[in-house]
Simulated scan of single mutants.
Amino acid sequence: MELHLVRDFGAGDIEAIEVSPAVLEIEVEPRMVDEADRILMMHSVPGRFVYAAGRYPGQLRVEIGESSDLDRIGEALLAITELPGSTPPSYAVRDLIADLYRRREDALERKEADTIEDEIALELYDDEDW
């Protein structure tokens, strides 16, 4: 199995309520895709994430949103690493999940700061209380 972050979390613009989701690409041997699909399906609903087949056999894409459970995604990835032919060790998955937590928090902070700056620029704050 190979893991690639193909799109990072994004702050978007003032009209977007949430940060834009990150996309994680998972590549497994084509013969293992059904089992990887089963694992992702079991974790997707409680983990609040969406996944789909990628561009070619053996590729799956996981969309990780602002409210996605990164621990549940980590559990799914660890289960996939246990499939025959998987290469990343468990610490690599744990490092990836820790990095995703950090990236999402950074995007949330950027979003909050950008929203405040946009509101100030649009003069949405009233000076009456000062």
Rank of each mutant, 00 (worst) to 15 (best):
M41K: 13
D69C: 11
I73M: 04
F9Q: 00
I64K: 04
D71P: 07
D71R: 09
A53Y: 15
E35P: 05
Q59H: 13
P30N: 15
D129S: 14
V6G: 09
D129Q: 13
D8Y: 04
R48I: 01
I14T: 13
L5F: 05
L83E: 03
T115W: 05
D71V: 10
W130D: 15
E75W: 07
D127W: 03
D71Y: 05
A11H: 04
E66K: 08
R7K: 14
V45P: 02
F49Y: 11
A107D: 02
D127M: 12
Y101A: 12
E25F: 07
G74Q: 01
I14G: 13
L40T: 04
L40I: 08
P84N: 13
T115P: 00
G47F: 02
M42V: 06
P21V: 03
S20L: 08
E35D: 14
S67T: 15
G65D: 10
D114K: 04
D118F: 10
V33G: 04
R48N: 01
A98H: 13
A79S: 05
R61S: 08
A79F: 03
M1N: 05
Y56E: 15
S90Y: 03
V19G: 02
G74M: 01
V19W: 00
P88D: 09
S67I: 14
V28S: 00
E112V: 07
L83R: 00
A98T: 13
E18A: 09
R7F: 08
R103V: 10
A22D: 06
G58D: 05
G58Q: 06
A121N: 14
R55L: 15
A113K: 04
L108G: 07
I80H: 03
I73S: 00
D37P: 00
E2N: 07
R31W: 09
R55M: 15
V6A: 11
I64T: 03
G10P: 05
E112C: 00
E75L: 08
E105P: 08
R104K: 12
E119I: 07
D95Q: 08
L124K: 14
S68F: 03
R103A: 13
P57E: 09
R48W: 05
A98Q: 14
I80K: 04
L77Y: 01
I26W: 02
D106Q: 15
D8L: 02
G85K: 00
D126Q: 11
R7T: 12
P89G: 09
Y101V: 14
W130K: 12
R55K: 15
E109D: 12
R110W: 05
R110F: 05
H43M: 03
R38H: 08
M32T: 03
T81W: 01
R31H: 11
L60H: 06
E109F: 11
L60D: 02
R110K: 08
L122A: 14
A121R: 15
E15D: 14
V23D: 00
E82Y: 12
E18P: 03
A53F: 15
M41W: 13
I120F: 06
